[in-house]
Design a protein around this nucleic acid. Structure first.
Lengths: 90, 90
DNA sequence: GTAGTATTTAGTTAAATACTTAAATAAATT
DNA sequence: AATTTATTTAAGTATTTAACTAAATACTAC
């Protein structure tokens, strides 16, 4: 999960995830949404992929990126554990 | 939420939150769990506080830290939005 | 008020991060 | 096979971050 938290700590990467909520996008389409060079976005995508937050699939000369929801689910159980916390305190 | 994500991106800070899941702790008690100087832990605590992930309360010469669960709840709704994502795709 | 304990602030340094430009790879088009 | 389009890799740089030590603040107890 450490990779995931690291990946999520950057606003640009979270915005990329937001874009992918609507539909799958190619690397180029993604980078069109940012004032940043394509290599920069490519690096961010690589990080998101290593964190298992997105998947990629080569389609001809394009690379299509899509969300991978499994880590989001893990994140939810992780966070729930802080709310539930049995009853250590109260 | 940006501060929260930033705060959560560090393993030491996540471990501090884990400790506070069990019970409220003073700054000193927290730092006892780490191979790190007290000032370092104090900085981490400051960051967690600025991210509203913890609260602190002065008790005599001690400062007692406790979890603030509100941001965890926000985090859960944020993550749920990626799983639900209406049906943009399918 | 001096001494001791708890914690934070300030200043420094090394490592990590987020960007850049230039070059490399890979597929599509002529 | 040469050119264009899509994307990534590599190399360099500026900024941020996470640690440290030393000094400051704040409370407690004598």
């Amino acid at each position: 999960m450490n990779n995931a938290f690291k990946a999520l700590s950057d606003p640009t990467r979270r915005k990329i995830l937001d874009l992918l909520k609507n539909r799958d996008l190619t690397a180029g389409e993604i980078s069109d949404h940012f004032n940043m060079t394509k290599p920069s976005i490519s690096q961010h995508l690589k990080l998101l992929k290593n964190a298992d937050l997105v998947q990629d699939e080569k389609k001809g000369q394009f690379v299509v990126y899509s969300l991978n929801t499994t880590v989001f689910q893990e994140l939810i159980s992780w966070a729930l554990d802080f709310i539930d916390k049995g009853d250590g305190q109260k």
